[in-house]
Nucleic acid binder design. Structure first.
Lengths: 122, 122
DNA sequence: CGAACTGTTGGATGTTCGTCATACCGTCAG
DNA sequence: CTGACGGTATGACGAACATCCAACAGTTCG
């Protein structure tokens, strides 16, 4: 059943709709798209300068991990995150490939450095 | 920009994350999977006996249409719904194909006739 | 040791979402 | 015309969600 604090849930227990819900967020989608290069990425500022708070990023990383999308390895005081590409491709063929092929069409909601992410600007 | 009551939004203005948000719901995902046979389907009881209210289905159909996934044609007093397969495949290659290949793995949340859909049983 | 760094945890808050119930409107059959 | 049918509109309600802030914990380095 993959309890709440499992390091990574068993991919056989992951439903498609759970993966979709995890990826149906602008920030998390971009994380997955970035992670799709196969390499590991840190969790800190350099890569991910969305305009959100540190703990918000922790929240998104947890959502992705609990949905079975990512794996986290701890190295000293930095954590590295990685896409579970092989397992995902085995269970959901073509899904990741379809996610990383974001079309550049004239669409609102521009890229990262922009504002417009804050749902709760306060 | 595809105003709120457009019959169908322009596919060029549809972002991937919008499609994902539309599909990240158990009922709507099953609708899309069913619609993926290419045929038209009515909106009424026979096909879609999820355990939800009539107006809830209207809500889900509107989400799908506004996200650019479906097209509705009115025929007398019945409405037919249809997946915009060609346009979707052109803009998001492989996405629909990945969505309809739901793996049957040992997963919770069985098919339709079951309960477990009601998030708000009251 | 102590300070800086990296990340998590636990509220708190406002928004969005899925659902239902009721009322409403257009279409077709009698 | 009147009623049944198919579907929509509106409003309400609770759960889930994204976000922030402050406090905390493990690591590395001076």
């Amino acid at each position: 059943m993959a309890s709440d604090d499992d390091p990574v849930p068993d991919m056989r227990g992951v439903a498609l709709v759970d993966v979709l819900r995890a990826v149906a967020d602008p920030i998390r989608l971009r994380i997955v798209q970035t992670l799709a290069d196969g390499r590991q990425h840190g969790k800190c500022g350099t890569h991910w300068n969305f305009g959100v708070h540190k703990s918000t990023m922790t929240h998104h990383f947890r959502i992705l991990r609990q949905a079975g999308l990512t794996r986290t390895t701890v190295a000293g005081r930095t954590h590295a995150i990685e896409l579970r590409r092989d397992e995902l491709d085995a269970r959901f063929p073509g899904l990741i490939a379809a996610l990383i092929a974001e079309p550049g069409g004239r669409s609102h909601r521009s890229a990262v450095g922009d504002e417009a992410y804050g749902r709760h600007p306060r």
